[in-house]
Design a protein around this nucleic acid. Structure first.
Lengths: 344, 344
DNA sequence: ACAGGATAAGAAAGCGTTTTCTCACTGCCC
DNA sequence: GGGCAGTGAGAAAACGCTTTCTTATCCTGT
């Protein structure tokens, strides 16, 4: 008869009658409130285990005004970068007893704001990962999303910490590396238009071009996946560029795969660089020169920022800038003195 | 003065006083209950938008006894297979208005049961992804987790649909493929001990060996990541095997990378096969022969099974078996007539 | 021995919804 | 014109918990 009428699940009331005490006392025992007599506490605990009582988190959340859950909104769960951030976030949050609710916007930026709002209301805080929405919209909804942490995006709204990777610097480092190897004709395979991180790369390249008037940098429209790189092979070969900066490692891998099919030797004929240093980058053939982003760490850091906000620790909501680190591997090499035709 | 005293957030009560009606009426309007006068409904709606009222999902969940959220428990979020399942699940669930809560057990099987229970209580249903716990434990807790869907695992407990990939068949197909190419000395790089899918592969190999007494199959202990494959190079070369069945694509890629460093030519000197057909598999050099698992589809299917359970549609909780499909690419080739020393 | 202060546990009021129950009112028909 | 079905909206209970408020009891000090 332990089953309660309404939901069919064991509730605090069942434990109370079994132990012969009030709801309140059961609650106190379950929450380790020491103002309760040890004998009674023992009786309650015994009743609880016998009935296999487990507190209902929804009731608890309503009473406490917190859910012990945080949300993360990502533009595309298929992207290894976001997967890694999610993983780091999940692991760090779990250590503090928090769970994470995911919301994938599938790159439709118009849904992002609604998605974020809905997620936020079910959670104690939110991480917005490289949101695609406009600056204006982001600034407008940011206050209603607080506590909020931004990744790879900043906002003028107050009290919103940001973690941003300095893609601009990273792409400059990669370009300098190629120039140092003697390359004078570069090409950039851009990422998705509207991606803020792509914008940062473009800014970085502008700065680079300002310093190197002698270097030719061709721009290609793009995307962020294998197929983008794979499909860019012909355009890249036509351009005559010998040093290719791919938007990220995936694009670089797609490109290298396509070049291989065309019999183009990387790095002898063409050098290719990626971005992110995803785990696969060190296992491609040739291994991929890239700019390493401590991406798992980013997730953990995001949690700590969010935690501080949730705990209302005073906080100056700064922008943390991560510097990518050049990982020079085998996909980049010296430019050929005279550019010969690709063999094969 | 729209701010309510207690939580500081706008509640149904604020809308009620603003519109000059009762809580109940506001609730009715928000839930499109048509028994309310259109004029009043309009007034309530106006008040709601003016106050930017958004219903509190926790209160709603408590009253309704449902959370519109499902949980997924995975042993390791870093594993591309689980990432893909998560993605498929998330996408399918989102289409029906459900969110997903993730719980990563970080491969500690002792935590799995607790983790699953906690997740379940916050959700309307649960997907258990290749749980590492024992059959006995799984069967014991399964009823308390209902509605529950299992992936790559089955249980004797009633009413629990299972989706399993036939790894045993897949590994046999791969082995037959290698034998068909003339290989007579095979090696299997096993996965994590305790992984059910590894067990299925081993069973498949036993069946294969029973049919091919002439073929030599060496077993190696293993893991499921790059490093496992990369670290197995010496052992593989020592074994003299020319056809290597890697536990999965990651292991295969690690192995190929290591073989490349040793100057061993794949597939001329040694053939390598993977398992799963992760997206990267078609971009490795050489491209990877593997057994394709329709992994994204699995997530979607898991959601549909779970949805049927949540909706209490009558259901015979069957085991759905997915047959892997052989993807023959460039990493497998004819065995050399005489086995010569690897060049380099 | 009795007032006063702890102390421990029950009663009840929230938390923010939904929903049943109840009631007032409209309009219909005989 | 008066009961009666029907309608629409408010009051209140319910969901399962935490916590304040209240009260009974016991202990201490004078």
């Amino acid at each position: 008869m332990a089953r309660k009428s309404a939901t069919g699940r064991i509730g605090i009331a069942d434990v109370a009658v079994k132990a012969g005490v009030s709801h309140a006392t059961v609650s106190r025992v379950m929450n380790d409130n020491f103002t309760v007599d040890p004998d009674i506490a023992a009786r309650v605990r015994a009743a609880a285990v016998e009935l296999k009582y487990q507190p209902n988190p929804v009731g608890r959340s309503l009473a406490l005004g917190k859910t012990d859950t945080i949300g993360i909104v990502v533009p595309d769960l298929a992207n290894p970068t976001f997967q890694a951030i999610l993983r780091g976030l999940s692991r760090a949050a779990a250590e503090d007893g928090y769970r994470v609710l995911i919301a994938d916007s599938f790159e439709v930026s118009s849904e992002e704001a609604i998605l974020a709002g809905e997620a936020r209301r079910r959670c104690d805080g939110l991480v917005l990962c490289a949101p695609r929405m406009s600056d204006a919209e982001l600034e407008e909804i940011a206050p209603s999303l607080h506590p909020l942490v931004l990744i790879n995006r900043t906002t003028a709204a107050a009290g919103v910490p940001s973690l941003v990777v300095d893609y601009g610097q990273g792409v400059q480092d990669l370009a300098e590396h190629l120039v140092g190897l003697g390359h004078t004709r570069l090409a950039f395979l851009a990422g998705p238009t509207g991606s803020a991180s792509n914008g940062l790369r473009l800014e970085g390249l502008e700065a680079f071009k300002a310093r190197h008037a002698d270097v030719d940098v061709t721009m290609f429209d793009g995307g962020s996946d294998f197929d983008t790189g794979h499909g860019a092979v012909d355009a890249v070969l036509d351009s005559g560029a010998t040093g290719i900066l791919a938007f990220n490692d995936l694009v670089a891998m797609g490109l290298m795969s396509g070049l291989h099919e065309h019999g183009v030797n990387v790095p002898v004929d063409i050098s290719v660089t990626g971005f992110d240093d995803i785990p696969f980058a060190r296992y491609t053939t040739p291994t991929l020169t890239t700019a390493a982003v401590p991406i798992a760490e980013l997730g953990g850091h995001a949690w700590r920022e969010l935690r501080a906000l949730i705990r209302k620790e005073d906080h100056d909501a700064p922008v943390t800038r991560y510097q990518p680190r050049l990982e020079i591997r085998a996909s980049s090499g010296p430019a050929k003195a005279p550019r010969t035709a690709a063999h094969g």
